[in-house]
Each structure stands twice: as structure tokens, then as C-alpha cells.
Design a protein around this nucleic acid. Structure first.
Length: 422
RNA sequence: GGAAAGAUGGCAGAGUGGUCGAUUGCACCGGUCUUGAAAACCGGCGACUGUAACAGGUCCGGGGGUUCGAAUCCCUCUCUUUCCGCCA
């Protein structure tokens, strides 16, 4: 949520920045500012009203103490009119506040100045690529390989649940477990404190990290208990600190967590959903940092380096891209995606997204700290996938294929898998 | 699922109708002392809103009510703890 103060002070700047996201904020901003004016005038009148009521109440207390009962009784009558007036003011005030909040949550975060212009993924900017992109034979897409070697059973997944819920078997099941442990160990080495989080969250948590109301339809919802299945561990991890006032010495907060992630992916049926490319349930190791505003872009670099390092250690060919204004998410100020090149299907697969949300989430969840001068200030939140499992598995299945149709396990995973090819 | 107790400032923990936004301890900040630190002592120290700055206002889990006046009384919801039941 964009801080209201910023809207008051520089509304034009906000509107201009949001245009980079192709979001026309002009009307919303004006509505907010108007409601804010009205709200403040209500507030002023109400405060004066309360002050008067308080003054009378206190004087009645004094009168009773002094035994002047009659005067006290007389004073009581004075407050009736004030209370009546207060009622109207209170309901007006509540209405304006409601209006402000409902409108404010509709505004996306402002993109960082380095976010490139652009409308779609086509306009994203490739920053670098790394690894071996050579193709010396005809690599199979992972779904063909999987059905050939009976590694992943998509049909039975359909039988159990539906499309997008595959059943991983034997070596691939173990490969996934190995990857999870590898990713968690690497994150731990980098100073991230591991946590295990709930996979279902309430709506307060959803609002705080920005999934609600923006992505309501993308989350599985348990109606009976009014709870949402997490689309990413980012939600529970960041929400650990919802409504918290941290000390400067607590920072930076660094957490990692493995979790299953659940996404309805409504409206995305089509060519990109084959095999492991897009699933309703998948595993992911997530890294989150909560830091002082001055350091957040430096920390973003650190997180990018961590993710890039993982892909290098796995030996997968990949590139890093800077998302353009049209492709960047509602909550993010700056996002870098990491994409693995899958040789079998000749496609780039997004395996990580690393973002700085600046104070957008912190403002929603009142996540603050006391800075060096003792002032309370909103913190910055960042997160990244490190990494998302199924597409990494797809990458390994395709890029580590041999001419015999086997798959070689990346060397760093050998201690975790206990086997070297399958 | 049943019963009981509870929810207060960054944390711990007093406070049961009238200067209580709240005693106290810890933490934190400043100072004295010290070569330096610790200890001790002195002082400061909640959040939000508002103001040029004061003032003013709101906040004792959430919501509602009683009252001139509520942290304190009533209703309700949520959560926590303990006991019982059930159970991985």
C-alpha cells in the first residue's frame, strides 16, 4: 500500500510512476485525496467535540468530590447535545476512512526508476545468460522422457485430484527431496534462518502481502473456515512480522522455508501447461528478507547473487531478466526473473522471481522499526524463490539428458540423492 | 467437542468506575563515575493522529452496550493457557 502521506505530498509523482505499470491512477488518487480532506475535517470536528465532552466529564468528577451534587447533575445535561452531534460525525468519519482504505488497496506499488518501459514479457530486458546452451543431439521434452521411463505419473495425478497435480515416482521423488535439502542448506549457509510455516492462512495475511484483493481468484479458498491455501511461503513468512515494531538490532531479518504452493492458475490453460511447466501444486524454497530502507537495493543484489549461484552450482543454462513495467507484479517495485533454458522443449522456464517490495507490504502490515534516531519507520521487504522445484526438475530432465536417454544427476546433488544417473 | 482462567506499552507484569495513557521491572537512549567497559547512580523513554510548534484527539485482543465519565461493569466474537474427551 502506498503511504497516504506520499499521496498527499506528491500525488503527481505517484500517478506518473504508476503509468510505467500501465496503471491509470489519476481518478483513484483524486478520490483518495478528496476523501482524505473530508475525513480530516470530520476528524477535527469530532476531536473538538470529544475534548469538550472530556472537559465536562472531568469537571463533574471534581464536583462530586467536592460534594456539589446539584451542580454536577446540571452539568450532566450539557453533554446530551454533544453526544448527538458526535454520532453523526463518527459515522461520517468511518465512511470516509472506509472509502480511503478501499481505494488505497487498489493502487499497485510504484516501480523503481530502473524498471524498463514495456507492456508484456516480450519487453523484459535480459541482463545476462550463463551456462552451456549447446545442443548436440535431439533432446526430449521432459514429459516424453517421463512417460518413457515412468518417472512422473500425470494420469494418476488426474485420477487423484485433477490436472496440475502430478504424482512423482521413485527417482524423481527422491530428486525433488534432494533439491529441497540442497536449497535449504545453501540458504542456511547464506544466513537465512529456516522456518516451517502453515500452508493455510487467513485473509489478514493475504491482504498484508498483497495477494488480496488483487489475486483473490488465484488462491484456493477453504470456505468452511475462510482460509486460503498459500500460493507461496512468502505469505506466512513475511506475515510473521505483521504488526511488529522491530529494533534496529533485529535487522536484517532473513528467513528461508520450504513449502508446497497452491495456485488455481485460473485462465491460464493453453500451451504453457504441459508437463511440469505450470502446476496447481508445487514445491518451493523461498527466501525472505526484512531490512532497513537504505539497504534494500543492496540486499536485492545479494539475493540475486544467491539465486544465480544456485543455478550455477546445478550447472543449468539460465538467464536473468529485468521485468518491464507491464510485467512486474502489483506489489513489486523491482523484479528480476531467473529462467532456465530447457533444451527438450526449447523454452525458457521461470524458476525464480526476486523482488523488492520496498515499504508496500510493510505499510499494509504495519511492519516498522525504530531507526538510529529513535523514529519509527516502515521497513522494506524482499523475497525470492530459491528455487521453485518442478521447473528445475524439468530443466534437469531435459538439460542433463544423455544420448542413451538417461539423466545424469548434477554433481552437487550426489550427496543428497545417493545415485548419479537414472 | 465440554469446563475453567486469561488477553494491558518492544518484552514481562500491576491496576476492578473519576487527572490512568496507565505503577513497576527488563530492554533502549542520554548523562555522572571509569583509561575503556561493566556495575552503581541521575534523567529520558508507548503507538497512531494532529499542529508551523503547542494544544487537542484515539488506542489496555476485535466489535457493540451501560454511564456525565470505562483498562475497570454488561453483551458478543476471536485467540491463548490449563483440565477432561477424542485422536495422528
Amino acid at each position: 500500500m502506498i503511504p497516504l502521506n506520499l499521496l498527499r505530498e506528491q500525488p503527481e509523482k505517484v500517478i506518473e510512476r504508476l503509468l510505467v505499470k500501465h496503471f491509470d491512477a489519476k481518478n483513484l488518487v483524486n478520490e483518495i485525496l478528496e476523501a482524505d480532506q473530508k475525513k480530516r475535517s470530520c476528524q477535527k470536528q469530532l476531536d473538538d467535540n470529544y475534548a469538550e465532552q472530556n472537559r465536562i466529564a472531568k469537571s463533574i468528577g471534581m464536583l462530586f468530590k467536592e460534594g456539589k451534587k446539584e451542580e454536577a447533575e446540571a452539568a450532566k445535561k450539557q453533554t446530551a447535545e454533544l453526544k448527538e452531534a458526535a454520532k453523526t460525525l463518527e459515522s461520517d468519519l468511518a465512511a470516509w476512512e472506509e472509502k480511503i482504505n478501499q481505494t488505497l488497496v487498489l493502487l499497485p506499488n510504484m516501480p523503481h526508476s530502473s524498471v524498463p518501459e514495456g507492456k508484456t514479457a516480450e519487453d523484459n530486458v535480459e541482463e545476462y545468460r550463463k551456462g552451456n546452451f549447446e545442443k548436440n543431439f535431439n533432446y526430449l521434452p521432459h514429459w516424453d522422457l517421463c512417460s518413457k521411463k515412468n518417472l512422473i505419473d500425470f494420469e494418476t495425478g488426474c485420477k487423484l485430484t485433477g490436472a496440475g497435480f502430478p504424482l512423482y515416482k521413485e527417482k524423481v521423488a527422491k530428486l525433488q527431496r534432494a533439491l529441497i535439502n540442497f536449497f535449504l542448506d545453501e540458504a542456511t549457509k547464506a544466513g537465512y534462518v529456516e522456518v516451517q510455516v502453515p500452508y493455510v492462512v487467513n485473509s489478514d495475511s493475504g491482504y498484508a502481502t498483497g495477494q488480496l484483493p488483487d489475486k483473490e481468484g488465484q488462491m484456493y479458498f477453504v470456505n468452511e473456515d475462510k482460509l486460503y491455501l498459500i500460493p507461496t511461503a512468502e505469505v506466512p513468512i513475511t506475515n510473521i512480522y505483521r504488526n511488529c515494531l522491530l529494533k534496529a538490532s533485529d535487522l536484517p531479518v532473513k528467513h528461508c522455508a520450504y513449502s508446497a504452493c497452491f495456485r488455481r492458475e485460473a485462465g491460464s490453460y493453453g500451451k504453457d501447461v504441459r508437463g511440469l511447466n505450470r502446476l496447481h501444486q508445487f514445491d518451493k524454497v523461498e527466501i525472505v528478507q526484512i531490512v532497513e530502507p537504505e539497504t534494500s537495493y543492496q540486499v536485492l543484489e545479494e539475493m540475486k547473487a544467491h539465486v544465480g549461484g544456485l543455478l550455477e552450482k546445478l550447472g543449468l543454462p539460465f538467464r536473468m531478466i529485468r521485468l518491464c513495467g507491464g510485467d512486474i507484479s502489483f506489489t513489486s517495485a523491482l523484479t528480476f526473473d531467473f529462467e532456465v533454458y530447457a533444451k527438450g522443449q526449447d523454452k525458457w522456464l521461470e524458476v525464480s522471481s526476486v523482488s523488492n517490495f520496498e515499504n508496500f507490504q510493510a505499510n499494509r502490515m504495519k511492519l516498522r522499526y525504530k531507526n538510529a534516531e529513535g523514529k519509527t519507520q516502515l521497513l522494506h521487504t524482499l523475497n525470492g524463490s530459491a528455487l521453485a522445484l518442478p521447473r528445475i526438475v524439468a530443466g534437469i530432465l531435459e538439460d542433463y539428458q544423455t544420448t542413451e536417454g538417461d539423466v545424469v544427476v548434477p554433481e552437487v546433488l550426489h550427496p543428497y540423492t545417493g545415485f548419479e544417473r537414472f
